[in-house]
Design a protein around this nucleic acid. Structure first.
Lengths: 263, 263
DNA sequence: CGTGCTTTTGACCGGTCTCAACGCATGTGG
DNA sequence: CCACATGCGTTGAGACCGGTCAAAAGCACG
């Protein structure tokens, strides 16, 4: 059995990283782009659980893209309460703004063991100078993240605790699926109920109650470190969940056409 | 009295637009970039109040940058409630994601009379291909918007209604100041209390009560269509407001150095 | 001077928080 | 193998923030 030349070139025999897989959802990579991305991915770092990758108020470091594991972006307020802004999954940027902002206005911590690709600012600048299409892909990453923030904002502003929790579970499940981490309704959740609470703007106690209610309504099953979404359609209906906002899709036709016209 | 040559070149005698002013906060424009931006700004459109610039679920149109007036980005849920995601002020993009997403997942409506610059997708692609530094500036715009979303998220998740309102007023005031609309504590607010409520995840009734409380505590004075922030320090203290997240600042040194190194 | 949108006010209700306690697993050191 | 500490999940009681409903008053605009 012969290996396809192009595949061998692209992947070097190993499955593509979450980062590459996401890039290829947005656009096909030219050989030059593909090679460049491979070079970017050559530096890989490992972080134990509970490591701070970035700290609120500090100068931004390099840019990291998660390869494996979970991290959270969060901020602690003066009164001591914590708000988790987003969960960072494989293929996500840890601090997308590091290239354009001088200081970080949130912290990033690993929850599990994490491995990540490191991109230097010089490499990002290089992308913008030499691979404008990849630069636009980075814009796409950032827009997707913004879309998630907007949807979270809608949850906190206009959905009940019960709905919010269902919505978050569905989102995390979908985002894991995009990146190829299993599943069919089986959601790996290496986080505590306090994480969920701080992300949903609720108390841990209330998250617990809502989780039990979801269980009682046979919408989910909760196990150690994982949740099984037993009735996905039911959850979607309750949460008003529509996965369109995740924009798990390619470059718009008219943008691709503009590129084609520009040559 | 002689006009400076460079200034005359940059502005053609008229004050720079909010868009250009913001760009120049991030980085100095080269003559070529400056000329290109001038060309971008040549097409200007006018929208009466209450016009939909984009609609939830529709295919994205062109990209608009506000020149004058106010608009809101919002979404209406199944249950009929509305969530305002952000206010769009002069110099802001109306739908930043239009180049990378096919369909919009929110609507944009003008509140006041609005004039806006229209950028076609082809022009954006042109920016990425020919002016990589401007492309990064667009990345900065988008990151700033993300930072505002994050701060709003923190408000909704972990701040009381009273704090949230104070925080929003301070943000709107600062954002107006950045763009050069006056002020010294005098905040032009062409919006209703219902707008504030839908933006803060509150009911209009409760916004009214909190506004009155702010007034009673001599922190603000409310007039028709404007709010005077009478005690800015007091408001900041209550809201836990720190303007760092607005990133009203230039390109980070190390990014500029990477550009210098690349030539 | 109606008409319609805002703002204002009051009474009541309910979702979510806080505080507090207890159970349960896991890990650690003696 | 036991004693203990620690962290997380679970449960209950009471308090409070903010929502809902309703009605009136103020203000623009035709």
């Amino acid at each position: 059995m012969k290996t396809e030349m192009s595949t061998a070139l692209r992947t070097n025999g190993v499955p593509p990283s979450a980062f590459r897989r996401k890039l290829e959802i947005f656009m096909p990579l030219s050989p030059a782009e593909s090679e460049f991305v491979a070079a970017l991915e050559s530096i890989e770092l490992a972080f134990p659980p509970g490591t701070d990758i970035a700290r609120d108020g500090d100068a931004h470091g390099d840019v990291y893209v998660l390869k494996k594991g979970w991290a959270v972006r969060y901020k602690t307020l003066e009164n001591g309460s914590r708000m988790i802004v987003d969960f960072i999954l494989p293929g996500d940027f840890a601090s997308p703004a590091a290239t354009v902002f001088t200081t970080a206005d949130y912290s990033v911590t690993t929850i599990t063991q994490v491995s990540a690709i490191r991109l230097t600012v010089a490499q990002i600048v290089d992308i913008f100078n030499r691979f404008p299409k990849l630069a636009m892909a980075i814009g796409w990453f950032s827009a997707r993240e913004g879309a998630c923030l907007i949807e979270r904002l809608i949850s906190l502003g206009r959905r009940s605790a019960y709905q919010r929790l269902a919505h978050l579970l569905l989102e995390l499940w979908q985002r894991q699926e995009i990146v190829g981490s299993l599943s069919n309704g089986r959601l790996v959740l290496p986080i505590t109920q306090l994480h969920l609470a701080d992300s949903l703007g609720l108390s841990a106690v209330h998250v617990n109650r809502m989780l039990r209610r979801l269980r009682k309504d046979s919408l989910v099953q909760v196990r150690r470190g994982e949740v099984v979404l037993a009735d996905i359609e039911g959850l979607k209906k309750i949460a008003g969940f529509d996965d369109a906002y995740l924009h798990f899709e390619g470059m718009p036709k008219r943008t691709a056409m503009a590129y084609a016209a520009a040559g």
